[in-house]
Design a protein around this nucleic acid. Structure first.
Lengths: 203, 203
DNA sequence: GTCTATATGATGATAGAC
DNA sequence: GTCTATCATCATATAGAC
């Protein structure tokens, strides 16, 4: 028995493991144990399926962490959850980064963080730019591993790229490097916003 | 007369205007005034063409701005140029974000900024994370416009997303919003790194 | 709601003539 | 170095039986 929910779940797992190109209606139907045309009883087009995947991923972000604490702590907790949700599905990030458009979960996410900032006293222009800056950081870090992008062979770097002499080791420490870079950027950004806050705050 | 250079130029313009899916060997050949198989005299596979596009884009980043100035100014100028090069080809960003791998221009870029930071006294671990953090910001901001991602229709936001009441105006000010968010993040990040610098510097 | 059968067209890549 | 012809495969989507 097919349902929108089951189709989206299996489609997401194909997207995660083999990329957007691998997500064909045939492959999807086959892994669901049905034939391809059956999908069209639940979705009008393949595009609708992709929208379903996207909204489901963003819906995983816990927005309640924005409540009951000051804006800097809230922003940090929200950004971590946002990154965690996106980094679990890197192949979906280019699609997600096209903006909330009409997807409910993405609109709710944007609304929540913007509301938290303006209610804390940030002028609208700043709240917008802070929200955008955070999305840049989250999307950029979830799009693909920095450390993984280097090759595992020392001879590539020797001679021609002297400063990258130890870059082949990055892959071993992949997660520590990526998490560390994100946390460094996050704490630096939010710390900087806190320093800026008293000069622009309006009540 | 075909050449690798001409093929890459036309392929890039198709990628920019119509996306990765539109970049087929037939379309590419047709715009070059040749037939599809002729491309295979210059590239072994389509994948090689994509690598050529990627390296050409990264080669546009001016690395000389890293010389002759202190590391904070250098980092800011480099990041602006890096973003400018990527934002001119947003459809290529997901591909570029997979890392330098074996592409010469991307390796030279990573080598240059890492070298600048370590020579300025940043410990290797910090230089790596700063480089990664900058790439997150640049890639995230070049991947797609934040402001463009909202819909141009006020009725979408009313009621359900009260804080986004004015979000439909974002599109008018698209470039100002995106540039402003990037510049805010950039100056905040580099300012924060400057504050951190004296506590970790080694000579 | 799911199926079989099929329409219709694109894709990357190769063989072999010129 | 470019061409024509073609291979093998894949795609999304529809019609109509059960």
């Amino acid at each position: 028995m097919l349902s929108r929910q089951r189709i989206i779940e299996v489609a997401t797992s194909i997207l995660d493991s083999d990329g957007l190109d691998a997500l064909s209606t045939r492959r999807l139907a086959s892994e669901l144990g049905v034939s391809a045309p059956s999908l069209y009883n639940h979705f009008g087009t393949k595009e609708e399926i992709l929208d379903g995947i996207a909204d489901q991923i963003v819906a995983q972000v816990d927005l309640t962490v924005l409540d009951g604490t000051d804006w800097p702590q809230a922003l940090i907790a929200w950004a971590r959850g946002y990154r965690r949700a996106l980094a679990a599905h890197p192949n979906a990030v280019p699609f997600l980064a096209r903006g909330p458009r009409l997807r409910p979960a993405a609109l709710a996410l944007a609304d929540a963080v913007y509301g938290k900032l303006t209610e804390a006293g940030w002028p609208p222009g700043y709240a917008t730019r802070i929200g955008a800056a955070m999305r840049y950081l989250v999307a950029g870090s979830a799009l693909g591993s920095f450390a993984q992008g280097f090759v595992d062979d020392p001879s590539v770097y020797a001679d021609r790229y002297p400063h990258l002499r130890d870059a082949h080791r990055l892959r071993e420490h992949r997660q520590r490097v990526d998490d560390g870079a994100f946390e460094l950027a996050l704490s630096t950004l939010v710390g900087g916003f806190e320093a800026l806050y008293p000069t622009v705050r309006h009540t």
